[in-house]
Design a protein around this nucleic acid. Sequence first.
DNA 1: CCAATGTTGGGACG
DNA 2: CGTCCCAACATTGG
Length: 606
Amino acid sequence: MPKPPSSNPIVLYWHRTDLRLHDSPALKAALSLNPSIFIPLWTWDPHYVYRSRVGPNRWRFLLESQDELSKSYKRLNPKQQLWVVREAPITILPKLFKAWGITHLVFEKDTDAYARARDEEVLQLAEKAGVEVIVRMGRNLFDPDELVSKNGGKATMSMAQVEKAAQNIGNGCPERIVETPVEGEIPDAWEFERMRLDSDFKVGVDEKPDLNEGFRTGKDKQYVSVMGPKNDFGVPTLEEIGIKIEDATTPHRGGENEALRILASCIKDEEYIGRFEKPNTSPADFEPQSTTILSPHLHFGTLSVRKFWWDVQDILEKRRKEKKSVSTIPTNLPGQLLFRDMYFGAQAAVGDAFATTYGNPVVRLVDWHLQSKNLENGSETEDDTRNYTVDSEEAEEWFIRWREGRTGFPWIDALMRQLRREGWIHHLGRHSVACFLTRGGCYVSWERGAEVFEELLIDHETACNIGNWMWLSCTAFFAQFYRCYSPIAFGKKWDPEGNFIRRYVPELADFDKKYIYEPWKAPIADQKKWGCRVTGDGSGSSEKEEGKTYPKPMFDFDKRRQICLDSMKNAYDVGLHGADKEVMDGSWGEKFHGGEKPKKRQKTEK
DNA sequence: CCAATGTTGGGACG
DNA sequence: CGTCCCAACATTGG
């Protein structure tokens, strides 16, 4: 079939980080081509399906968002939908170019490491096929690459740098939003018979390792047919992924409508928007939460970050005119969005190595427990599927108990159980548990914690997750390691009654507030009276126990805090970073254990 | 060289 | 509630 002339554009619009119709510069660019045929596409990429850590809650959120996008297309044009194909973009796109006679490929820019490499390849494939590619930024306030270039080509590592760089892009403001397509503005795709793909599209998928195997209680049917099990290019179901709906317990719903509904309801409360200061929002609030919970929508692009920015800025401007109080960057809402851009800038500058310690120039090396294997040259054993080294059985036990929410510290356990159940915890709660796992308790590598968050968070954004773990572990962005979160005092400050604990650790629901943060201190008689014994490790292996139990604390926090503090001091004295020679060649251990003591950094004599 | 600053610590004291 | 201290990090601006 001859390729139609380019005056008759056949446009493939590739959705990735933008499951929305509103404020999408890329979608606008695609529709501006005045397509004769328009095909909104999603490629169900095995890399995401098997190599990224995604728990049931995030799968659900993604599917809800896709489903709604597909319905929105259908509403604007009954012949339209989101066309979901089950194959890797690199292999399927060239075939689709040919099969559908594509003249233009349009998508939103993505600066994540994997996405960058993939898109580079797609660009070449498109060129070979004679397909014109249009890429537009829409995922961030500022193009991360531009932010970096305005920061002297260096990773954006502080708010001050971001603000200065942003000042040189748009006077510190992102571009205004673009209009949403309305009925009649979405052209048709081909007739269904012309869309149909034959069986040679089905490619073998290398399913191992499947990082999400543990969640698949049902059969994995994701790559049975390229057009999906009903051959209709439909949005996958949880069942297709092998996940039971009852395992996806998050109360937070996906989709563009939900995102815009939440935003609108937040914006209506001008006092809340105007006076918002993140450090003054409570990590112990629930129903309603103290923050907007729009982060998962920013992740999936069901909400445009620029719309969020400008809707807030318009309120702030109004309040300034009315001489009402307005909180400032970085604690206000625009400041929160700028932090997101800061992490995207850091990731864009560092590239692939940003997600790890190994090879990463901006991250400090600390002699954590359970380090990633790439830091431990040659310690790998044949039958060990763990990607980290077990240097301490005790530390691995602490890590597992942390992950499962049975550390014996109710504040920590409540947060970790909220994370698992709902896929979301407040930012300060994340601080608490991250500090506890790393520099303020377990001294376990932040990379282990980041993996657990990657799996469980519905708002998991690689740049932000990695950046925040570095921040909390004092390996980058932040260095005041002597500021340590107490698993007892910090929660108590926000929630002296312990209502948050009562909700997420129901065993302790009847404990007096005097003991709810430290239940092990409650007299046995009281424990009996309140219906829960504090005993064991929470693993359920002490099966003789009658009635409810809650584990004893897994260590003496004050002792652990001191050990961590001393170790951090030493690690700072050693002063190595992830891209240093000693880290790359695996010899860094000598600087910590054997050999000469690290030179104390010079301090002026008093 | 020094001082100030940095989104979000904890604890004693007034 | 605010203030100061604890012991002490890196960066920035003078």
